[in-house]
């Protein structure tokens, strides 16, 4: 629906999201909760099997710490809580068959800026999509699967580090940038700004001077690296606007956006070039593995 200005939305960390559905044998479109930063408490109204992936948000069941990147089982009355981010920023919580949520144009993705998503498909009077006391309905009746006990193989569990190297596919206006700007982009380290959200991640660092201040507004791809007048790059994330008029140097490889989505402000970021072919090959194997 981008041609009518609607943002695409979707899980910020597709890697963690896909693994959570995979652990439960879910189809990949099964909806999950993305829990950003913790501070969440959930009560099991009946026995339920869960998969928990992504950030370590100090998850506990009835006060006892539990590990992520695996399935777990809750009994009726159990409490699952998330405190604060210890590693990474966003945890993913999947249940068999997914959560029930009304679809808007075939999607249950939440885009707060557009006022779409959540349990009622719209932002309510209080400006909320999910409120304290809400009951999260399940899409499937069978959500307790004691026979499923799986964990993600160690080699697929990412380290959420404070230093990140991002592969960059050069495209859009890249060729118009000066040699000096290109060197600044590739040879300096940037810091992830706290002024970042699901729409865009802002970086602070040496100014990458753009070749011009604006371009005629054009469609923006996920991961696009916009360079506004002040030379501080903005990486466009899942809820990005559909059109933009800043010069763009290219796009961060999509698989790298998953690690970036878990980065906390202050994380040190470095860019390195990757060919479209190499990045495309990696993305294709990801899509094939998860049957996306």
């Amino acid at each position: 629906m981008g041609y009518q200005g609607l943002a695409q939305g979707g899980p910020m960390d597709l890697h963690a999201y896909c693994w959570a559905n995979y652990l439960l044998g879910n189809r990949m479109y099964c909806s999950q909760l993305e829990i950003t930063g913790g501070q969440t408490r959930l009560l099991a109204r009946r026995a339920v099997t869960l998969a928990l992936t992504g950030a370590d948000l100090a998850a506990r069941v009835n006060g006892q710490p539990v590990d992520g990147w695996r399935t777990l089982h809750l009994s009726e009355g159990d409490t699952l809580s998330f405190q604060f981010p210890r590693k990474g920023l966003r945890a993913y919580l999947a249940i068999p068959g997914g959560f029930a949520a009304p679809a808007v144009f075939g999607s249950v993705a939440t885009v707060l800026r557009d006022g779409i998503g959540g349990l009622r498909a719209r932002v309510d009077d209080r400006g909320c999509l999910i409120n304290q006391g809400d009951f999260l309905e399940t899409a499937s009746k069978e959500v307790f699967k004691p026979g499923i006990n799986r964990m993600v193989p160690m080699r697929y569990i990412p380290e959420y580090t404070r230093q990140l190297s991002l592969n960059l596919i050069e495209s859009y206006q890249a060729r118009a940038f000066s040699e000096a700007s290109r060197n600044t982009l590739y040879n300096s380290r940037f810091t992830l700004s706290s002024n970042s959200d699901r729409m865009g991640y802002r970086l602070d660092g040496a100014a990458v001077i753009p070749p011009f201040n604006g371009v005629i507004s054009e469609g923006i791809a996920l991961g696009a690296v916009q360079i506004p007048e002040n030379g501080q790059p903005i990486i466009l994330m899942r809820d990005h606007q559909t059109l933009g008029g800043y010069p763009k140097f290219g796009c961060v490889a999509q698989l790298d956006l998953n690690r970036l989505a878990q980065a906390i402000p202050g994380t040190s970021i470095h860019f390195q070039p990757i060919s479209l072919e190499a990045a495309g090959k990696k993305l294709k194997s990801f899509y094939s593995f998860f049957n996306l």
Partner: peptide
């Protein structure tokens, strides 16, 4: 997946397993 026209351009997003550039 998306076909987004704007002023002088048409942006197209596609499924990477169903087609290629």
């Amino acid at each position: 997946i998306e076909v987004i026209p704007s002023y002088t351009t048409i942006y197209i997003q596609y499924h990477p397993l169903k087609t290629d550039f």
